[in-house]
Design a protein around this nucleic acid. Sequence first.
DNA 1: TAACTGTATTAGTTATCTTAGTACAGTTAG
DNA 2: CTAACTGTACTAAGATAACTAATACAGTTA
Lengths: 126, 126
Amino acid sequence: MITLDYRDKRPIYEQIVDKLSELMVKGVLKQDSPMPSVRSLAAELSINPNTVQRSYIELERMGYIYSVRGKGSFVADISGIKNSRSKETERAVEELVKEAKLVGISEEELILIIRQKYEEEEGRRD
Amino acid sequence: MITLDYRDKRPIYEQIVDKLSELMVKGVLKQDSPMPSVRSLAAELSINPNTVQRSYIELERMGYIYSVRGKGSFVADISGIKNSRSKETERAVEELVKEAKLVGISEEELILIIRQKYEEEEGRRD
DNA sequence: TAACTGTATTAGTTATCTTAGTACAGTTAG
DNA sequence: CTAACTGTACTAAGATAACTAATACAGTTA
């Protein structure tokens, strides 16, 4: 389902949160479909169940999943989250523009880079 | 000279590195001009001198400053660093484009936002 | 010489991350 | 009903990173 990157310095539980939420945003994991159980995902990734549980608690707090005792965890309706993630991205653009101006990248140069990256990303399957 | 943001979750030494390097890139701190001494900056920020020293070690490692025993630390020639920071920014654009596509922001929408942010940043003095 | 500079070392605290083991509560297939 | 699965909760322990603290040494300068 996902793989861990041990070169990544971020905590494991955070990587799991990011990768799973990405799968949900992409629509690979659809609304109300079951998430892997805490124990099975832990076994698959060869990590402690507590670490996965921590990721699930975080995902539930953020609204990506809902959990039912005895039944399992399921993908929530994330349409609202997509919007807030959009706004977050706009804020990230602000930081990027600030840094670009700082290092002397002009508006037109930045836009050129954007177009280029979009092309590169075009055919990508991930 | 700089102020710390205690709501910022990043380590203090990293904040110092970022803020001081920004001042150098902006040209506020010019080449060969003296940096505040480890002890004086620590006093000014009410933190331990070792924390400031760690920032200075990092700044020296990155090439922003050079230190002379007994004399002090000084701003280095950072023209080369500006270039590498530019390349770093291009890499950041890649991440941004990836996230933008994920949350459904089109190329033209993103460019529109960029133009808008550039306008907002235009008159800014920081 | 006194008062600055950077540098080095050691130690202790605090917080975060991860693992481990155990236990309880609810669901479900056989 | 029961075995095997779910989520949830708790405590403990080890590792690591960030920060503080105290102290000392080395070089510069008014």
